[in-house]
């Protein structure tokens, strides 16, 4: 498999969210604003790519029995970096994201990629796979948050797009809409991309 294939697989064909149904918690929770989603996506991509790289680097020296806990600790270390950087540079967004930055540790995408890819393939391939899967995750976040922010607040990235005639559709900013939008997205992708039904 070429590097490009690895990337495309992670981002589209085997997309963690719509194909493997992983990492749903944060996909739903942070998508009420586009900026938050973008930061969350970048943070996850960073932690995912580098933890995949590190896990792959030590894959031949990690005993199978402590594999899981070693992977978790490596992931946690990178997530702490993301958390500290966010707290220092973007305190406002860090506050809004709240526990969801820390929850990257238990995000199934990271463990999933570590198990399915990084523990079998060389470091550079794993890095590319991590970036690909992170890009796929960010893409889903951006798609959902586009509609939620546009209809819920009339803005995009905090900039007013819909004028005074628009009445905010407050349900879009609340939890239920996230479930509906993700379901719709999965339906459309199944139908158009995977040609199911």
């Amino acid at each position: 498999m070429t590097k490009k294939d690895v990337f495309l697989n992670g981002a589209f064909r085997e997309n963690s969210v719509w194909k493997q149904i992983l990492g749903i918690c944060s996909t739903l929770a942070v998508t009420n604003l586009m900026l938050n989603s973008l930061i969350m996506g970048l943070g996850l991509t960073f932690a995912l790519a580098l933890s995949s790289f590190t896990i792959s680097l030590i894959r031949n020296y990690t005993p199978r029995s402590v594999r899981m806990i070693a992977q978790t600790l490596i992931i946690a270390a990178y997530v702490i970096i993301v958390d500290i950087v966010l707290k220092a540079q973007l305190p406002e967004i860090s506050k809004q994201l709240g526990p969801y930055v820390g929850l990257i540790i238990t995000n199934c995408i990271l463990m999933g990629r570590a198990e399915a890819f990084a523990s079998k393939y060389p470091p550079i391939d794993s890095l590319v796979d991590g970036i690909g899967a992170g890009a796929g995750y960010t893409l889903v976040l951006m798609l959902i948050s586009f509609f939620r922010e546009l209809f819920g607040f009339g803005t995009l990235f905090g900039v007013q797009v819909l004028g005074g005639w628009w009445t905010d559709w407050s349900i879009m900013a609340m939890a239920p809409s996230a479930f509906f939008l993700l379901a719709l997205l999965i339906w459309i992708i199944n139908k158009k991309y995977y040609k199911v039904g």
Partner: peptide, 9 residues
């Protein structure tokens, strides 16, 4: 609908 079965629904 087939595309909605499982997780979607």
């Amino acid at each position: 609908p087939a595309g909605l079965q499982g997780v979607g629904i």
